[in-house]
Write a protein that binds this DNA or RNA. Structure first.
Length: 559
RNA sequence: UGGGGAGUCGUCUAAGGGUAGGACACCGGGUUUUGGUCCCGGCAGUCGGGGUUCGAAUCCCUGCUCCCCAGCCA
């Protein structure tokens, strides 16, 4: 039944492979601009670019589209390389930079000038905008549109030579100022920017625009399928025009809908604003949809790759529910996360009939979903921590945790029965529970057919390690923070409750050895990981990656 | 009133003349030393109106709605 999932781009590739359109090659590229950190939306594109090529025995280049020195930084390049690699993709020796092609691009531009298809325009920016017309009104020709080839070539060379200040002149393609597609109204292809480039330094003072550069990059690298998002659909005619005018190798641009997720934003500009305004702890804050944030949150690359496949690829603008992402994480972590015990909101239990000073090391299964995960021993003693929410004085019948007179199982340990509740005389708050354990139930079993519904997690007081635990909620309070009411902006929907810091948590001693990048399930609580930025041997800090599904909480809420 | 795209369960996505399928979400039930996992079941969709056809989500006509484009950003 499990018909393999497909999408329109995969079908195009299959057809092209069958027809031999590209010599039976598939060669894609992932072309980020190094002006920010990669996010889950990029992951979809990365998985598409790399995944599709790999599926058909093709190749994928990692290419930095670094044509704007003002916005681009080396820090971003490093993070992008790290993130793509972390996701599990390999570009082998094909790490390219658009800036490596600047000379070729320049020469091709001269070729366009010589063909009478490009001209140097002296119009200032505001005039260029004015002459462009509007969506409904045609533009008008620049007075400089009909300069001779000789004059254009001379001026263009002098632009490169640095004879003019920023904004003084531009090189424009000569297409049609009355074209219904705004992109075809003599688009600018080179601008003067006396700015140091992160790779070429001050070698250049003119830089190519995206539309000119991108198709050439694809052409130079002999890309077959150039995948990009929907907003570039309007640019395809230009992409094709340039390549056709030049008579060079001509890849096919195919557009797909970008990924949107509920309760978050996906624009680098907006994510950067959260960082700059200090609303989050950097690009890698665990609440961020960035790959570095998801990594710090405890997402696995596998979960993200499965998610990318699950959301599918189409041309319909859409917003995926974040629950699907969480589901993919739970599915992956369920198979791999080591089960450990951690008490987040501790209340003390004293076993009245357990020998003082005695310690038993009980065997605990590391992962019931993975036999190879083995077992470990955990210390059990007279005084234990259990979860405050696992006890209720006024327990309803459906509640099968601890209550006065009720018996529960301590996971991997013994059955215990609550015999006495010690309260603070001042506040009336429960301070301690006095219980009795049944020595005949070691390991959590009894052969007398006794029915014990509840199983609790616990940590030995004498052996517990203190830890800080961080829980996260949605980054924004609105399902779609981009859709703002009049007078508001997306940042107004930032969720001030999105970070909860729990202190005084008690975790089992084995967690002292936990390292960033390892996956844990805090039994009955959720999936957690060590925060690679904040955690230290002196102060353990864990992040909750995602909670466990909780049907008890659900029935309580709706009931 | 310009151009380019897109409309299938609540959400995402298949089916491209022949039984509208899957996943998430949601709702039941079973198993369970995690109120987890797993298993079983349920809910729910072709934007509207015409037409062609034995048969239309699919083809034709028409209407409607939504998204993108007026950077010397990508």
């Amino acid at each position: 039944m499990a018909e393999e999932k497909t999408n329109f781009i995969r079908e195009i590739v299959k057809q092209d492979l069958a027809s031999g359109k590209w010599d039976h090659r598939v060669h894609t590229r992932f072309p980020p601009e190094p002006n920010g950190y990669l996010h889950i939306g990029h992951a979809k594109a990365i998985c598409l670019d790399f995944g599709l090529a790999a599926e058909f025995g093709g190749k994928t280049n990692l290419r930095f589209d670094d044509t704007n020195p003002i916005k681009e930084e080396d820090e971003y390049i490093q993070s992008i390389i790290e993130d793509v690699r972390w996701l599990g993709f390999d570009w082998e020796d094909r790490l390219y930079y658009a800036s490596d092609y600047f000379e070729q691009m320049y020469l091709l531009a001269e070729q366009l000038v010589k063909a009478g298809k490009a001209y140097v325009d002296d119009l200032p920016p505001d005039k260029i905008r004015e002459y462009r017309g509007t969506l409904t009104q045609p533009g008008t020709d620049s007075p400089f549109r009909d300069r001779s080839v000789e004059e254009n070539l001379d001026l263009f060379r002098r632009m490169r030579a640095g004879e003019f200040p920023d904004g003084d002149k531009v090189l424009r393609a000569k297409i049609d100022m009355r074209h219904p597609n705004m992109n075809m109204r003599d688009p600018v292809i080179y601008r003067i920017l006396h700015a140091a480039h992160h790779r070429t330094g001050d070698v250049w003072c003119i830089y190519p625009m995206y539309d000119w550069a991108h198709g050439l990059e694809d052409s130079i690298e002999r890309i077959t399928h150039s995948l990009c998002t929907l907003e570039f659909e309007d640019h395809r005619p230009l992409y094709d025009w340039f390549l056709d005018q030049l008579g060079v190798y001509h890849p096919q641009q195919i557009e797909f809908a970008p990924l949107n997720l509920t309760y978050t934003v996906m624009s680098k500009r907006k994510l950067k604003q959260l960082v700059v305004e200090g609303l989050v702890d950097g690009w890698d804050d665990p609440r961020m949809p960035t790959l570095s944030g998801l990594r710090r949150r405890g997402y696995s690359p596998e979960a993200i790759r499965v998610f990318s496949e699950e959301v599918g690829v189409a041309k319909k603008p859409s917003t995926t529910e974040i629950e699907l992402l969480e589901h993919c994480l739970r599915t992956d972590l369920n198979k791999r996360a080591l089960r450990v015990m951690a008490v987040l909101d501790p209340i003390k239990v004293t076993l009245k009939n357990y020998p003082e000073g005695q310690v038993e090391w009980l065997e605990a299964i590391n992962n019931p979903e993975d036999e190879n995960a083995g077992t470990r021993n955990i210390p059990f003693s007279r005084e234990l921590w259990i979860e405050r929410s696992d006890f209720r004085e006024d327990a309803p019948r459906k509640y099968f945790r601890l209550a006065p007179g009720r018996e529960v199982r301590l996971k991997h340990a013994y059955y215990i029965t609550c015999t006495e509740v010690v309260k603070d005389p001042e506040t009336g708050l429960v301070r301690e529970l006095i219980c009795e354990y049944d020595p005949k139930t070691k390991g959590g079993w009894s052969d007398d057919g006794r029915k014990v519904r509840g199983t609790l997690h616990w940590v030995s007081v004498a052996h517990a390690v203190d830890a800080e635990v961080r829980h996260f909620d949605r980054l924004f309070t609105q399902k779609n923070p981009d859709e703002v009411e009049p007078g508001k902006e997306f940042i107004d929907y930032f969720n001030p409750e999105s970070l909860h810091i729990l202190t005084g948590c008690k975790v089992e001693p084995s967690l002292m050895k936990a390292r960033p990048g390892e996956y844990f399930q805090f039994l009955r609580n959720g999936y957690y990981c060590v925060d690679g930025k904040l955690s230290s041997p002196e102060q353990l800090v864990f992040n909750r990656s995602v909670s466990l599904r909780d049907s008890w909480a659900r029935t309580n809420k709706t009931g």
